[in-house]
Write a protein that binds this DNA or RNA. Structure first.
Length: 214
DNA sequence: CACCAGGAATGTA
DNA sequence: TACATTCATGGT
């Protein structure tokens, strides 16, 4: 049973790394902002960008919506792709403001909300799902490069495209936001802790057949 | 020096 | 549909 295998891996990860308390942000606005800034970018650089935004009181969607792009660019430079991301943040901020913010958007069901998020230029599947799971607490599994690597290494799926992998987790696990939250966070944690060179890490904290590096 | 990091949009065939 | 390119900073 594939579901048992997924649970087995989850328990092993949780046992070694413990709870991760994701998303690493203080407010929902910061979750959304961070979700955009972290696109293909090391989290360390995202932290610097967010710190700059906070210092300038620009760490809210409303502030980003009302502030000149040039000021935002200066703040988020450490996160890279700052020209694109400034525009992306503007698009997302405008989306939330024009739709009445979290209070109105949370009234939509998950499929409808996901579709609307994907309609924002700069919000792809992973970013949309990160927002759904971590800002709206919806039972959506977030798939990233690490998740694909995990599935490939452990041969959990033939197809490695986003939808196939997401379906794998969501069809074989309970639709529990807490579970999906922790599972994704643990996969990222594990990926960061392991070398990416060897198929099986030397001194891997996990047993050999469960080493999650590639 | 090369290569990558919690992607997405756009262009090409 | 399936790849290739572009975007940009900072760490290893």
């Amino acid at each position: 049973m594939i579901g048992d295998r997924l649970i087995q891996i989850y328990k092993k990860l949780l046992e070694h790394y413990s709870n991760q308390h994701w998303w690493p942000a203080e407010t929902r606005d910061e979750i959304v902002i961070g979700a955009v800034l972290t696109q293909n970018t090391a989290w360390k650089n995202v932290e610097r960008a967010i710190e700059n935004l906070k210092r300038a009181n620009l760490d809210t969607l409303m502030a980003i919506h009302q502030t000149k792009s040039s000021r935002i660019k200066e703040c988020i430079k450490p996160a890279g792709f700052y020209n694109q991301k400034t525009q992306y943040l503007k698009n997302v901020a405008r989306f939330f403001v024009e739709n009445g913010g979290f209070e109105q958007l949370k009234k939509l069901d998950t499929p409808a909300l996901r579709k609307k998020l994907l309609g924002v230029k700069g919000v792809g599947k992973e970013t949309a799902d990160s927002i759904l799971l971590y800002a709206f607490d919806r039972p959506i599994f977030v798939v990233d490069a690490y998740t694909k690597r995990l599935c490939q290494r452990h041969k959990l799926s033939e197809q490695l495209d986003y939808d196939s992998i997401q379906g794998l987790f969501m069809e074989h696990l309970d639709a529990d936001p807490k579970l999906f939250n922790e599972y994704h966070a643990l996969i990222v944690k594990n990926a960061k802790e392991h070398c990416r060179k060897k198929p099986i890490c030397k001194g891997c904290p996990l047993e050999e057949d469960l080493c999650l590096s590639d």
